[in-house]
């Protein structure tokens, strides 16, 4: 192990669903405070890749290190990694039976064993940061999609993660709400968070990402800083993909 371990390091990662080879020899190192945007066609394995980083899916070959902790099959390693990693989902996955505030305090209280009052203070702080403190007492079902996604971000931040994973956080949103979520994420990025973000919001990638990763058929095809990635793509598949979405 090097002196300062990278935030996330994947090396030779392979994953199969049954006989279906969904991740093939994936190598990727993410430094601390680095922002990575992952894009690629549907079914290329983007979700699977970032779900492997917090152990929601288990990889079968290769190694994954998060902040120096190796993800082995053992539950202890999965638990240790999940303490470092927050995740935001496409469909928010807020706990429908809990209020916004309770959504945010659940893990601090039950995982970190924080007192209720301290957890609520913490949660209100993050709800403030995503600019919806006034919604603390509402239930998720009463919120717009954009508001729900911002709650989901605050909920993840309440566990003070070192790395944040986003799986298409804006693709279930109506167009007018995409911006409020992207703005929240950009602000988080400016604060120095390490981020792995699956998204097709190319404006966001250009503005915020340090590197863009293009995946196809379970492989990393091209990794480049956004300017180069968008203006001078090298691989034929990258070019084909970009010509379709831009």
């Amino acid at each position: 192990m090097t002196e300062i371990s990278p935030a996330v390091a994947l090396s030779g990662v392979n994953k199969w669903f049954g006989a279906h080879h969904v991740l093939r020899d994936v190598d990727l190192t993410v430094e601390k405070a680095e922002k990575i945007v992952i894009c690629g066609p549907s079914g290329s394995g983007k979700s699977t890749l970032i779900r492997c980083v917090n152990g929601l899916e288990a990889h079968q070959q290769g190694t994954i290190h998060v902040d120096g902790i190796e993800l082995t099959g053992a539950q202890a390693s999965v638990d240790a990694v999940r303490r470092e990693v927050g995740m935001v989902f496409q469909h928010f996955n807020l706990f429908a039976h809990l209020t916004v505030l309770e959504n945010c305090t659940l893990a601090p209280i039950h995982v970190k064993r924080m007192g209720r009052a301290a957890a609520e203070d913490l949660a209100m702080g993050y709800l403030d940061r995503v600019r919806i403190p006034q919604l603390a007492a509402k239930f998720p079902g009463q919120l717009s999609g954009g508001q729900q996604q911002r709650v989901a971000i605050a909920r993840a931040l309440c566990m003070s993660p070192k790395v944040m994973l986003f799986d298409e956080p804006t693709s279930a949103l109506d167009p007018e709400m995409v911006k409020e979520v992207l703005d929240t994420m950009a602000e988080l990025a400016r604060g120095g968070m390490t981020m792995l973000c699956v998204t097709h919001e190319m404006g966001f990638a250009r503005e915020v990402a340090d590197r863009v990763v293009f995946m196809d058929e379970g492989q990393v095809i091209e990794v480049a800083p956004p300017a180069e990635f968008f203006d001078r793509p090298r691989h034929a598949r990258t070019k084909a993909f970009l010509s379709q979405i831009l």
Binding site: R82, V85, F95, L106, H110, R155
Partner: peptide, 23 residues
């Protein structure tokens, strides 16, 4: 109960038992 609820609980670090009991 959608599968996403358990996944969100797991991603937050809740154990399987906690996720069942609380979510």
């Amino acid at each position: 109960v959608p599968k996403g609820q358990e996944e969100a609980a797991a991603a937050l670090g809740l154990s399987h038992a906690q996720s069942l009991r609380l979510v």
